Amino acid sequence: MRAADEAALRRIARRRARQNVQRRERVDVRYSVNEKQAILAEARRHNLAGAHLVGAIVMAHLDSDLALPAERAATDDLIDEFAALRTELARIGTNANQIAHRLNADGNAHPVDAAVLAEARRLVTTVRQTVAAVDAAADVAATHHRAA
């Protein structure tokens, strides 16, 4: 799965809000065994119920927020790639912070630790700057997309 598709699915699946009253209306849909397994596996991966995932995707499409693959514009892919890139950058920053925390947790600093900590600080600063640039680029892409 492409990063853009992954980011779009996560964005859409998480957007469906809870309602004050229970949803009672049903639409029955039939899937093959393989299709059902794929839906449930994807739902589990996003920590969602299968019905929630399917409902969110259908409602996003009906609200014109999720284009079918043939209807997607290059800007849609670009925005979703930015979202995926931001997630990966955040993971790098988290790893650098964990390294720094581990080195700082031990009261006895080793001479090599100072160099590693300095590099971790530099990496975190670079990640923060890159995340800000990615956020700005995604905002520009989304603004141009809405205007189009």
Rank of each mutant, 00 (worst) to 15 (best):
residue 2 R to E: 13
residue 3 A to K: 03
residue 3 A to R: 03
residue 4 A to K: 04
residue 4 A to I: 00
residue 4 A to E: 11
residue 5 D to W: 01
residue 5 D to L: 01
residue 5 D to A: 08
residue 8 A to C: 11
residue 9 L to Y: 13
residue 9 L to I: 13
residue 12 I to Y: 07
residue 13 A to K: 00
residue 14 R to P: 06
residue 15 R to F: 10
residue 15 R to A: 15
residue 16 R to Q: 08
residue 16 R to Y: 08
residue 17 A to N: 03
residue 17 A to D: 08
residue 19 Q to F: 03
residue 20 N to A: 09
residue 21 V to Y: 14
residue 23 R to Y: 06
residue 23 R to I: 06
residue 26 R to Y: 06
residue 26 R to L: 08
residue 27 V to A: 14
residue 29 V to K: 02
residue 30 R to S: 12
residue 32 S to V: 11
residue 33 V to L: 15
residue 33 V to T: 12
residue 36 K to Y: 15
residue 37 Q to S: 12
residue 37 Q to N: 13
residue 39 I to F: 15
residue 40 L to F: 14
residue 41 A to H: 10
residue 42 E to R: 07
residue 43 A to Q: 03
residue 44 R to W: 05
residue 44 R to D: 13
residue 46 H to E: 12
residue 47 N to V: 01
residue 47 N to E: 10
residue 47 N to W: 02
residue 49 A to R: 13
residue 50 G to A: 12
residue 50 G to S: 08
residue 53 L to M: 09
residue 53 L to C: 09
residue 54 V to C: 05
residue 54 V to D: 06
residue 56 A to C: 06
residue 56 A to H: 01
residue 61 H to Y: 11
residue 64 S to V: 05
residue 66 L to N: 01
residue 66 L to C: 04
residue 67 A to Y: 11
residue 67 A to V: 08
residue 68 L to Y: 14
residue 68 L to K: 12
residue 69 P to A: 07
residue 73 A to S: 15
residue 73 A to E: 11
residue 74 A to C: 06
residue 74 A to T: 04
residue 74 A to Q: 06
residue 75 T to A: 15
residue 77 D to M: 04
residue 77 D to W: 01
residue 81 E to D: 14
residue 81 E to M: 11
residue 85 L to Y: 12
residue 87 T to V: 13
residue 88 E to I: 03
residue 92 I to E: 05
residue 93 G to K: 03
residue 94 T to A: 13
residue 94 T to F: 07
residue 98 Q to D: 02
residue 98 Q to W: 01
residue 98 Q to C: 00
residue 99 I to Q: 00
residue 99 I to W: 00
residue 102 R to V: 05
residue 104 N to P: 07
residue 104 N to D: 10
residue 105 A to R: 07
residue 106 D to Y: 09
residue 106 D to Q: 09
residue 108 N to A: 08
residue 110 H to E: 04
residue 110 H to D: 08
residue 114 A to D: 09
residue 114 A to G: 04
residue 114 A to E: 07
residue 115 A to G: 07
residue 116 V to P: 02
residue 118 A to I: 06
residue 121 R to Q: 12
residue 122 R to C: 09
residue 123 L to V: 03
residue 124 V to A: 03
residue 127 V to S: 05
residue 129 Q to V: 02
residue 129 Q to Y: 07
residue 130 T to D: 01
residue 131 V to N: 00
residue 132 A to G: 08
residue 133 A to S: 14
residue 133 A to K: 11
residue 135 D to Y: 10
residue 139 D to P: 03
residue 142 A to R: 05
residue 143 T to P: 05
residue 145 H to M: 00
residue 145 H to Y: 01
residue 146 R to A: 13
residue 146 R to T: 13
residue 147 A to N: 13
residue 147 A to F: 11
residue 147 A to Q: 14
